[in-house]
Amino acid sequence: MGLKAIARKNAIHAMLIYTGGCNGCDIEVVNAVYSPRYDIEQYRVLLTWNPREADVLIVTGCVTWQMVEPLKKIYSLIPEPKAVVAVGACAINGNVYKNMVGEIGVNEEIFAPVDNIIPVDAKVPGCAPRPEDILMGVVKVIPKLMEAP
């Protein structure tokens, strides 16, 4: 393991982008960072709000129409190597908004699986996932960052 891999393992900047949905996952991610009980910083993950600084992009929420373009753009701004963690059932399959429709048949407001828009490396299921799971999801993408050239 070279210096590059050690450095990448020891400092991970995570960015949260919230693309519409019910707020639940979003607050659990914030909980994982801000609640001293979970405290993501002790696992060497620091929260940032600047795509230029980030390594890991945490995406929550079913992607609504207006958030598609910002999501793509922000993903493109992150310098390589980067990884994406999709948090919550909405980001993985659209949850009730996409799958439990009444008479309209297809809800075209939701562009939900984040896979369709940007490549996803780790998925954290749950509605809403627990903060422990979110920590686990972020930790799972570290090997990808470490192995990148």
């Binding site: 519409g20 949905g21 929420g61 079913c62 609504t64 129409w65 207006q66 958030m67 009730v96 908004y97 439990m100 429709v101 009444g102 008479e103 309209i104 809800n107 407001e109 939701i110």
Partner: peptide, 15 residues
């Protein structure tokens, strides 16, 4: 405030 529009009221129609 229209970024999070999911069409909830429309989804519920007929459930």
């Amino acid at each position: 405030i229209n970024m999070a529009y999911r069409g909830i009221e429309r989804l519920l129609e007929g459930l």
